[in-house]
Design a protein around this nucleic acid. Structure first.
Length: 794
DNA sequence: AAATGACGGGG
DNA sequence: GTGTACGTCATTT
């Protein structure tokens, strides 16, 4: 029996591993009772310690916990040989029990490898790798075999929920519909509302309960490997779970008929579907935003779909759901279309991005389910854990709270960030030094064990501007791993050159080289992250020090070449092309790369017709396809009026698409005028803020709390979780005192000055200020007036 | 100036 | 990850 390993899970009750494999014609599971685990003890007088540990017996739940095996072994601690005690427990759950007992024994210095979840330790110790082959031998033992990543069958889903209070309450508000889209072209909406519709993909059932049952049935029948959703960890699955519980339906989406398993993780709940891979595409998007691959104002499905795939999908305001559900008609039809378009967009995005994560999964040896939910630092850490295990390295524990807090206190000089030449610029080229940090790690042998080593006090390599030297005699564990990753990427890119761009193989190899690049680039972040196992402030600050050295050198070279540098941050140069051509820019690239040492390499990030720089870390650019990316300016959120969001977007478009600050100024001017004249739709002025707790619990009474109080006084039911929709009105008192819920607005008029000064202007002034505009000019009439009149208008 | 509370993705 | 993000902003106190 042989297949690709899709998922691996430890089943606690049975104390066994369940592996899901996909062969050419089926998907099947294998259970493995042989779950290995171990941990290591560093200490003094090991022989004596071995004898003490051997005798440990702890009564726990009517059973005696004792080690199965205790022996001295030789391991490595950051490459240095070290004799330690290996403890192998009888059962995985005994690891913590034994470790707590051993921790306090006299002579014990450190314990290693004890805080690695069972399923992960299993894969690492057995050298079984997700997205690679697993073969079951005659003896029932499992081993890794090389197999290519197959095409996985995928289905995406999206639920729409009734939301009369703004935010839906799972205990009360039903799911209206479930939209589905399969990679085989399958399209369906299941709903239990019997409105007439011309859409042929709508299947009407009798109740919400039947709808969920049908959804489960379709997933089972379709027999998909991958289940996509957008923000499903945070919203759809937790909501479905509550509704299903209430309606007494089982969410048996599992390939073995099992119910979904929810696990708390970060701020959302990761939902595992046995035998399939549940991918929350938003988690992927969030990851790509974190590493800077995409920079957008908002990460809504609509925006991401447009940005990454260049396609449009219909939108549907969350405030209109109730009407559509209650009245049907045209709005209902629109809601159906919206629902399906969400499922389709999610599917397409998932298909586009999944290959990258499958490659990441294969490289670091953890399941795709886990990998899509990891931070870049965790990805590197798991790679190091696997590599370390193979090399007999002791795996350091995650830091305890105290250590973490100590590390948080430590600061060091970071990257070089140039103060931008502020304003609107045209015709730019951006170079990216992405592999700068990993290259530095390899080129300069940066590792916790090589900095200020015992052997090179005299002749170690000096770190610029720091009292550190680096070992020249011994290669560090980290540089070794990074080099392996960089070499693999180099080889992959070489193979890539021989392939046709749209071939399946090309896409897969391209995903692989991208995955390797992401991993390489994440080492530095990991070293500076206080919760990391291999945290090292000395390494992190040595890397940034070398980095500053190289980037400054490159800026100098650009200026000498005739490319004006307008901005630079860490590893990127934003230059004006000026009278240079794109070919010149490429020539410059070659010139720089020929002079840089070792594997350090500058890359072309792209050409940008326009960009606007506000301050360090705050800028917006438009690429040649008209896509706008924004960094550090994205602060207009739900609790801002639509008019502010709209103005910010229009201003950025006017500046970047049309290159006209006059147009941008005119837009602001017109909107300010319209606000003053009262020529604004009420819905553009509504501010939506969630009431997070009972009104009485608020220590600080903000506008939405006052508005909620007014609602309650008017006899409306007010409860935590509700979205309060309010308008700022004219009158006396603080901002809060003038907040009125939309429902009770009556003939009160909105406060134009609040909307101008607290909404529209803050959203655009940071940008407009650098273009030389003052608030005064933007809020006074554009039409020429006699000077004296301005006084009255201002 | 410090404390408090909300935002994100989803609906 | 038996670890419930996290960094930023507006408004109140």
């Amino acid at each position: 029996m042989k297949g690709i390993l899709l998922d691996a899970e430890y089943i606690d009750e049975k104390a066994e591993m369940k592996l899901w494999l996909k062969s050419d014609d089926r998907v099947f599971s294998i259970s493995d009772k042989d779950v290995f685990c171990s941990f290591f003890v560093e200490g003094e007088d090991l022989d004596k310690l071995v004898k003490v540990i051997e005798k440990i017996e702890i009564k726990e739940n009517g059973r005696i916990v004792r080690p199965k095996s205790v022996r001295k072994v030789e391991m490595k601690k950051l490459g240095r040989r070290l004799e330690v005690i290996e403890v192998i427990p009888e059962l995985p759950k005994d690891v913590q029990t034994l470790r707590r007992q051993i921790r306090d024994l006299p002579g014990v210095k450190q314990i290693y490898n004890y805080d690695i979840p069972v399923a992960k330790y299993y894969l690492i110790s057995k050298n079984l790798v997700p997205m690679d082959g697993v073969e079951e031998a005659e003896t029932k033992s499992l081993r890794r075999v090389q197999m290519p990543i197959p095409k996985l069958r995928a289905l995406s889903f999206d639920i729409e929920v009734y939301n009369p209070t703004g935010s839906p309450r799972p205990e009360r508000d039903p799911i209206m519909m479930v939209g589905l889209a399969g990679d085989d072209g399958f399209r369906k909406i299941i709903t239990w509302r019997n409105f007439p519709t011309k859409l042929d993909f709508v299947e009407i059932v009798g109740s919400e309960r039947e709808m969920i049952e049908r959804f489960v049935e379709i997933v089972k029948e379709s027999d998909v490997d991958v289940l996509f959703g957008y923000n499903t960890d945070f919203f759809d699955f937790p909501y479905l779970k509550e509704r299903a519980k209430l309606l007494k339906v089982k969410l048996s989406f599992g390939r073995d008929g099992s119910e979904v398993v929810a696990r708390r993780r970060k701020f959302a709940t990761a939902t595992r579907v046995r035998g399939r891979i549940h991918i929350d595409v938003f988690a992927i998007i969030d990851f790509l935003a974190t590493i800077g691959t995409i920079k957008l104002i908002h990460y809504t499905l609509e925006d991401v779909y447009r940005y990454l795939l260049g396609k449009e999908k219909p939108d549907f305001e969350f405030t209109k759901f109730v009407d559509a559900w209650e009245k049907g008609g045209e709005e209902w039809e629109k809601l159906l279309m919206y629902n399906l378009s969400d499922a389709v967009a999610t599917l397409e995005l998932g298909q586009e991005l999944l290959p990258l994560f499958l490659e990441l999964s294969k490289i670091i040896g953890q399941t795709p389910f886990d990998v899509v939910r990891m931070t870049p630092g965790q990805i590197v850490e798991w790679l190091l854990i696997a590599e370390g295990y193979r090399k007999g390295e002791l795996i350091p524990a995650r830091p305890v709270a105290e250590t973490y807090e100590e590390r948080m206190e430590e600061t060091y000089a970071g990257a070089y960030v140039m103060e931008p030449i502020k304003g609107l610029h045209e015709n730019l080229v951006v170079f990216d030094f992405r592999s700068l940090y990993p290259s530095i790690i390899v080129t300069h042998n940066i590792d916790p064990s090589t900095i200020n080593c015992d052997c090179c006090q005299e002749d170690g390599e000096k770190v610029p501007d720091l009292p550190y030297y680096i070992c020249k005699r011994k290669r560090g564990f980290l540089p070794e791993v990074v080099e392996k990753i960089l070499n693999a990427r180099f080889e992959t890119k070489k193979k890539l050159k021989e392939l046709k761009r749209d071939s399946y193989e090309y896409k897969q190899l391209n995903a692989k080289q991208w995955a390797l690049k992401i991993i390489a680039n994440s080492f530095y972040g990991m070293l500076g992250y206080p919760k990391a196992r291999w945290y090292s402030k000395e390494c992190a600050e040595s890397i940034t020090s070398f980095g500053r050295h190289y980037i400054k050198k490159t800026i100098k070279m650009a200026e000498e070449f005739g490319l004006k540098v307008v901005y630079s941050d860490t590893d990127s140069l934003h230059c004006l092309l000026g009278n240079k051509t794109k070919e010149d820019a490429l020539k410059f690239l070659d010139e720089v790369n020929s002079k840089l040492p070792g594997i350090i390499e500058l890359e072309l990030e792209g050409f940008y017709p326009r960009a606007i720089y506000v301050t360090k870390k705050r800028y917006a650019m438009i690429d040649e396809d008209g896509r706008i990316t924004v960094k550090g300016l994205e602060f207009v959120r739900r609790d801002w009026a639509a008019i502010a969001k709209y103005t910010q977007e229009e201003v950025l478009k006017a500046l970047l698409k049309d290159g006209s600050k006059e147009k941008a100024a005119r837009i602001i001017n017109e909107i300010v005028e319209r606000i003053r004249k009262g020529d604004v739709k009420l819905e553009d002025l509504i501010i939506y803020t969630q009431l997070k707790m009972p009104i009485e619990n608020y220590k600080s009474v903000g506008p939405h709390v006052v508005a909620a109080k007014r609602l309650r006084e008017a006899g409306r039911e007010v409860e935590p979780g509700m979205i309060i929709a309010y308008v700022q009105t004219r009158g006396r008192g603080s901002i809060s005192e003038r907040a009125y819920p939309v429902e009770l607005l009556g003939d009160r008029s909105y406060d134009p000055e609040y909307y101008i000064n607290h909404q529209v202007l803050p959203a655009v002034m940071r940008i407009m200020e650098v273009l030389g505009y003052s608030e005064r000019e933007l809020t006074s009439k554009t039409v020429e007036k006699p000077k004296g009149l301005d006084f009255f208008l201002a």
